[in-house]
């Protein structure tokens, strides 16, 4: 464990807490893409298949349970909760995310570290996470104004993978064997997809204006 990875995990946790706060405090999920939440639930379920077979540390196991539990709880809330589901922007959240799932799975069948079920699902989860934010970014552009908590959620979600890139650089120089280029490339793509959001987020913060993404 290094400071970059710890910062990344905590930033990721903060993004989830901000999202839970927004949904719980406002009893609304307006501006949140259910499709992105479903993709993230799939990412964690596919990535943590080793939850009960490979024990890394208490921290690792607890965080995996938190990520799986919170992502499923958010999807449940947005689909089933009587009050919250009424504020879901169904007509704006139209990204065909099934193509992202299919594409990531096909890529994982072709490009993986080892041809085992666990490694193929791991690679699938890495590729899917890289593009999982797309429905959310599209929804933000369509819904025009972005409320503060939603903006902060997306910001922290993007920032966490940037910390992971620093973690991979650190591990590359400190551990001879560390060459996880599947994570490297997907992590760079994932962070790059946030580039324009980060730009408009920073500009809105600098000008102390509401976050507006160009349609």
């Amino acid at each position: 464990m290094n400071i970059f990875r710890l910062a990344g995990d905590l930033t990721h946790l903060i993004s989830i807490l901000v999202l839970l706060l927004k949904i719980y405090a406002t009893k609304s999920c307006s501006g949140i893409s259910l499709k992105t939440q479903e993709l993230y639930a799939l990412v964690f379920l596919a990535r943590y298949l080793d939850l009960f077979t490979d024990f890394v540390s208490v921290y690792n196991t607890v965080m995996k349970l938190v990520f799986i539990g919170s992502s499923l709880a958010i999807v449940w809330c947005m689909r089933m909760h009587r009050i919250v589901k009424r504020s879901y922007n169904r007509e704006l959240d139209t990204f065909r995310h099934y193509f992202l799932v299919a594409g990531s799975f096909v890529l994982a069948l072709v490009v993986h570290e080892k041809f085992t079920l666990q490694e193929i699902f791991w690679a699938f989860s890495i590729y899917l996470e890289a593009v999982a934010i797309l429905p959310q970014l599209v929804l933000l552009q369509r819904s025009g104004n972005v409320d503060n908590l939603t903006g902060q959620y997306v910001f922290f979600l993007g920032a966490y993978r940037a910390f992971y890139i620093l973690n991979w650089i650190y591990r590359y120089f400190t551990e001879q064997r560390f060459g996880r280029w599947i994570s490297w490339i997907s992590g760079l793509v994932q962070t790059a997809l946030y580039a324009d959001f980060f730009y408009y987020y920073f500009m809105s913060w600098k000008n102390n204006a509401k976050l507006q993404l160009p349609a």
Binding site: R5, H12, R47, D50, D54, V56, N60, E119
Partner: peptide
């Protein structure tokens, strides 16, 4: 299992 196959990151 050897470090190689084990994904120790979240």
């Amino acid at each position: 299992s050897p470090e190689g196959s084990l994904h120790d990151e979240l």
